[in-house]
Nucleic acid binder design. Structure first.
Length: 799
RNA sequence: GGGCAAGUGGUGGAAUGGCAUACACGACAGACUUAAAAUCUGUUGGCCGCAAGGUCGUAAGGGUCCGACUCCCUUCUUGCCCACCA
């Protein structure tokens, strides 16, 4: 009654494994295709998000294989990270054994889905044969001054007991546990990603096959903004305050300037002034508050007057210097000029503290602005006023002219500022790559020599909830001799952020066992770059930006000859249930394993591809899965009643389907490809299929439902695996119909249809159309204005 | 506040300047069955009509065009990302 998916799926999974069916080797005679899905964190169980991500990738890889490409489709595990430590504490085990157990379980689950991975290339980032190269890369960066240590205010998660990168702070909380992030002053390791900011920005233009959205997000994150640094001399002093603005056109309207509380000049400015005590108190309070509280947009802007005045360099007006919480030290110069009339934030601040307003731009067609009547800042364009020699100019033109003039006069400097910060990679955690550094009281910071790599992570660190990094408690690890002076020294106990691990794993897959460098150049040259990368949109900034940075670094080392790692990128949509993201906390998880048990992996794969296009969100619907299963049974039954010779009409449908499905697969439009295959199946029932037609139907289904197709392929008498076959080709001649249905419109509305010969002449066509009964009625003798013919499609008559 | 994406039947979705709603799900009716399941066949956007047919209809409004779900403008709504970024 039903095809026996349990037996069939197990049978072919064993077959593929035993035959290493999807193992890839360099083959210069064939075009390569490197397909990669973002590797998972080994939590032990796969979820629907994995199923969707990996099914999309799997279909693409099997399709490319059938098309004759030399396909590399590897899989591995992003195995370092905090959950292993938490699990170790909870289950009284070790992160190492917990992780390896999870990897085993995860492999089993992935194999049950029938994914065509080259398991010979499997890697785990927690193996020292992998993380050794993290350390190697770190040392190379250190040599080039791209890795450095500095003390600074960092994001600290008290719950995870570790620092976080800016990229890991989400809505003021830790990206992992949502705990509110605190500010802490610590000495930490950074990678100088800012050294690559221009290239990271410019090369976005190369990534034409990336979603626009991802490029926009990276663009925003890098955050290039052009403007002018303007120099304000402090009155009765030789100090100069530099402020950054993108609106040089408003410089004549600056009525005060504001420093960030952390601004290094603040102390000197207030020294000996009446306001000193009050200001110091304010600074202390503000700097202790976490950045997140300070930057929450609903918080009222607070500030104090320093007692000092500055001179506006363009008109020598004296303006008061304030310190306020809404100016950030991290951006620009840590100081701003405030133009309350043309900046809403400045406007609110000025109103609160009764500061002066001065209009310098008048809108062109709206009512004239008046300082006394303004209720909000005017941020639009217009004509310069109160701006000396620039009066009357359009503000956008003035913006450029003022900037050039100021630079010429030495009043300022045309300047570009960036949002991108250096990448903080130190983590006060155990389960990560040890940073290969030794601290010696005599020699200072000493890198571990290459020959001593890897610095192995000790497996027996004590695990308790309290007391910080367990690694620091392993004496045998910490105590070491300095490689330079051989005296007693101390190891770095911070480990690397796990995003380091995933920033180059796609290169390791090219030569996973290579022992003398992170990757082997000839193999890398053959396989890279990744032709198609598939993963979640949540990695649009972090992982993809870091990977691009690493790739450019390897290029600079001369190890590779390309600058971008991923050619095409597909970000698959999320799997929803009842309109919400599936999550444990919401309790709306659907377990893939139980779906496999009930309907089989093939039906699950089919449903998940059919229910929505890859990029859009997918609403989970078990009835849809049931439908997919029914469809497979319907296809299965065809083989029980094959005819010796198929009807020509069916053959025509077949060739149309081949054309459509080939195109759809190439464009990742799996949902419409499946719809076409369903139509072909319906036609098989209508006309009766022969072995030829049915074989091709099965072949086209095989990337989607591989076990099912292998079994039918065998039943049809083929001796080799279906994945050794070639993708079917269509006969263009069979697609050409002699006759065609022609749509007749009157004034753009469909009024009739006629069947005509494909190669009919225009005159004959016109005659036929005008003889059509319905058309005669519609025309009813009205004069004909136009007769538009769209060849092979329709005619439109305008009356 | 800025950026990006999207809005089509009861539902998932198809069509990207040329027949709106392909393919499914669901629903309804029928066949088979003692019955149910499974399977097969048919109907299924709204309104008017016995029917033939007509008419309205792709978030709302406007525009371009012989012709607009599709292109342009305005507005609304939803989702995602960024954000006191000067």
């Amino acid at each position: 009654m039903f095809y026996d998916f349990k037996v069939i799926e197990e049978k072919w999974q064993k077959f593929w494994q035993a035959n290493k069916s999807f193992h890839a080797e360099i083959d210069s005679t064939r075009e390569k295709y490197y397909l990669l899905e973002m590797f998972p964190y080994p939590s032990g169980k796969i979820h629907m998000g994995h199923v969707r991500n990996y099914t999309i990738g799997d279909v693409a890889s099997r399709f490319k294989l059938l098309e004759g490409f030399n396909v590399m489709h590897p899989m591995g595990f992003d195995a370092f990270g905090q959950p292993a430590e938490n699990a170790a504490i909870k289950n009284k085990t070790k992160p190492d054994s917990w992780t390896h157990k999870c990897i085993k379980e995860m492999e089993t689950e992935l194999k049950k889905m029938g994914f065509a991975y080259d398991w010979e290339r499997e890697i785990s980032t927690c193996d020292s044969s992998y993380y050794k190269w993290n350390q190697w890369i770190f040392l190379k960066m250190l040599e080039r001054n791209l890795a450095y240590k500095k003390a600074s205010g960092v994001n600290w998660c008290a719950s995870c007991q570790t620092t976080l990168a800016n990229e890991e702070v989400v809505e003021g909380g830790c990206w992992r546990c949502k705990t509110k992030v605190e500010q802490k002053n610590l000495e930490q390791w950074y990678l100088k990603i800012t050294e690559y900011k221009e290239r990271l920005l410019e090369d976005l233009a190369q990534l034409k096959d990336w979603p626009e959205r991802v490029r926009a997000m990276q663009n925003n994150w890098i955050g290039k903004s052009s403007g002018v640094d303007i120099y304000f001399r402090v009155k009765d002093s030789d100090q100069v305050i530099s402020v950054f603005t993108t609106r040089a056109d408003t410089i004549f309207g600056a009525t005060y300037i504001v420093l960030a509380a952390e601004h290094p000049m603040a102390g000197a400015l207030i020294k000996g002034r009446a306001q000193e005590k009050e200001v110091l108190k304010f600074i202390q309070r503000v700097t202790q508050e976490s950045k997140i509280v300070r930057t929450a947009s609903d918080v009222k802007k607070e500030g104090v007057f320093t007692g000092a005045w500055a001179i506006n360099p363009v008109n020598n007006e004296e303006v008061p210097i304030w310190i306020a919480d809404y100016v950030l030290m991290e951006y620009g110069t840590g100081a701003i000029m405030a133009v309350p009339t043309h900046d809403q934030r400045d406007f609110l601040f000025a109103k609160t503290h009764s500061l002066a307003l001065k209009i310098v731009i008048q809108p062109k067609c709206k009512p004239v602005l008046n300082e006394k009547q303004m209720t909000e800042a005017y941020e639009g364009g217009g004509q310069q006023v109160n701006s000396g020699e620039f009066n009357g100019l359009d503000n956008l033109i003035a913006q450029e002219k003022i900037a050039l003039w100021m630079e010429k006069e030495g009043l300022g400097k045309i300047q570009t500022h960036w949002r991108l910060r250096d990448w903080l990679i130190s983590r006060q955690r155990y389960w990560g790559t040890p940073i290969p550094i030794i601290y010696c009281s005599k020699c200072g910071i000493v890198p571990v020599p290459y020959k001593d790599l890897p610095v192995e992570l000790p497996k027996d660190a004590p695990f308790t909830r309290e007391g910080g990094n367990p690694l620091a408690k392993v004496k045998a690890f910490v105590a070491v001799n300095c490689p330079k002076c051989l005296g007693p020294a101390r190891r770095e106990t911070d480990t690397m952020a796990t995003f380091f691990d995933s920033s180059w794993y796609f290169l390791r897959f090219c030569s996973p066992d290579f022992g003398s460098a992170p990757f082997n150049l000839p193999e890398t040259k053959y396989w890279m770059q990744v032709d198609q990368y598939i993963g979640g949109i949540e990695h649009a900034i972090l992982h993809l930006l870091y990977s691009r940075f690493f790739t450019k670094f390897f290029q600079d080392l001369g190890m590779i000859d390309f600058s971008e790692p991923f050619g095409k990128l597909l970000t698959q949509g999320m799997v929803l249930k009842d309109g919400e993201v599936m999550s444990k906390s919401k309790g709306n998880i659907v377990d893939p394993d139980s779906m496999i048990k009930n309907y089989g992996a093939d039906a699950l794969r089919l449903f998940i591809l059919f229910a929505a296009p890859p990029e859009t969100e997918l609403e989970w619907d078990e009835r849809g899965l049931e439908g997919a299963f029914k469809f497979l049974n319907r296809v299965w039954r065809i083989h029980e009643s094959l005819k010796p010779q198929a009807d020509i009409e069916l053959v025509k449908v077949l060739h149309k389907t081949i054309q459509k499905v080939t195109k759809d697969f190439a464009e990742f439009k799996f949902n419409t490809a499946i719809a076409s295959l369903m139509e072909l199946t319906n036609a098989c029932y209508q006309f009766g299929a022969d072995k030829e037609v049915f074989s091709k139907l099965v072949l086209m289904l095989s990337p989607i439902v591989p076990h099912f197709s292998e079994e039918l392929w065998e039943i049809l008498g083929h001796k080799e695996s279906i994945f050794k076959a070639a993708w079917p080709k269509y006969d263009a001649q069979l697609l050409v119909e002699e006759n065609m249905d022609l749509v007749i419109q009157i004034n753009g509305k469909v009024r009739s249809k006629i069947t005509v010969a494909r190669d009919i002449s225009q005159a004959a066509l016109e005659k036929l159309v005008l003889e059509d009964e319905k058309i005669i009625t519609w025309l009813a003798g009205k004069p004909l204005q136009k007769f538009i013919v769209v060849p092979q499609k329709l005619v439109n008559i305008v009356i």
